[in-house]
């Protein structure tokens, strides 16, 4: 009985924290982008413009929720929910601190990979159900991009799994007691980071929603709360990938002096900031360049890394 209550509190606490982080990231991103462009960003509403989040929320909620008559209604409505749900589900396996996770799954990493692959359905279905050509092109691009980047996203993580000897994220963190995996698995880290950016379709890999050519890509036809859900999904995705980079390569909650949760948060924040910095810096590549980069550079690097790690583990073992 007591156990159940604890689990419930933990689950809903994490859920509430994640949702508010998703909202705050909008503010953070706008402020950071402004900082890197010699501007201020939203700084009027509340202290440091923090209440901007609330104002934006209210605006999104009260916007007309319009479903175009040519859209495939049920699919159109379900699509934005998918991305939020699968991203939130992925968080279930992330260990925030020792014992602070929704579930301690022994195939945690596989679960994450599966869930993040499901995320593409959201984008592809949204593109399809919108019934407009821009959305469809956005959806198509995203499917092709996901296919390409999903492959080596998984492969890049296998090095970590080999060295830790487990798919369980908590075990992986514990295996980094002495050295963080960013040292032996440096190439895996780079490839996973790139794949992670592509997975959340952030700039420079935001081809599915390239504003300059596709209006807004797969969410061109969305408005109001549904559009807000896509946004939330995107920011949750950033948080998820950043957390995983921190957990898999930077030793998660490990670190001296500070409490474990603080270490986890600091590392995650570092990568969220990196995501935004990358957005502030890099231009969007052409579509063929994106695909060529994925298949011809990242995939071979991931495979070679896997090979080297395998040899290393065999020799040592």
């Amino acid at each position: 009985m007591n156990e159940t209550v604890m689990v419930l509190i933990r689950t809903f606490g994490i859920l509430a924290a994640l949702l508010s982080v998703g909202g705050l990231l909008i503010w953070l991103e706008r402020r950071l982008l402004a900082l890197w462009q010699e501007r201020y960003g939203p700084n009027r509403v509340g202290p440091f413009g923090l209440l901007q989040v609330v104002v934006d929320m209210v605006k999104v909620l009260f916007k007309e929720d319009w479903v175009p008559p040519f859209a495939d209604r049920p699919v159109f409505v379900v699509a934005p929910a998918i991305i939020v749900i699968v991203t939130l589900l992925s968080f279930a396996v992330v260990p925030f601190a020792p014992g602070l996770a929704v579930i301690d799954l022994n195939i945690g990493l596989l679960f994450f990979l599966g869930m993040s692959s499901l995320g593409v359905y959201s984008v592809a279905l949204a593109g399809w159900a919108s019934g407009s050509k821009y959305s469809l092109i956005g959806g198509l691009r995203s499917s092709a991009q996901m296919l390409a980047y999903e492959v080596f996203m998984g492969l890049s993580l296998m090095g970590v799994v080999m060295q830790a000897g487990s798919f369980d994220l908590a075990r992986i963190v514990e295996a980094q007691q002495d050295t963080w995996f960013i040292v032996p698995q440096f190439f895996g880290f780079i490839v996973f980071l790139i794949a992670g950016i592509a997975e959340t379709h952030r700039l420079p890999f935001d081809l599915p929603e390239a504003e300059s050519e596709l209006v807004a890509g797969f969410h061109s036809e969305y408005s109001g709360l549904k559009f807000g859900l896509f946004f939330l999904g995107e920011y949750l995705g950033i948080t998820l990938i950043s957390s995983l980079v921190a957990v898999l390569f930077l030793g998660g909650w490990q670190g001296p002096w500070l409490p474990p949760l603080a270490w986890y948060l600091a590392k995650t924040f570092l990568f969220i900031a990196l995501f935004i910095l990358i957005r502030a810096t890099l231009p969007r590549p052409r579509y063929d360049q994106l695909m060529a980069f994925g298949w011809k550079v990242c995939l071979p690097v991931a495979l070679l890394n896997l090979l080297a790690t395998g040899a290393f583990v065999l020799l040592k073992g």
Partner: peptide, 10 residues
């Protein structure tokens, strides 16, 4: 290099 340039713009 460009990441660094943007970062120091801060």
């Amino acid at each position: 290099k460009s990441l660094w340039t943007v970062l120091v713009t801060m």
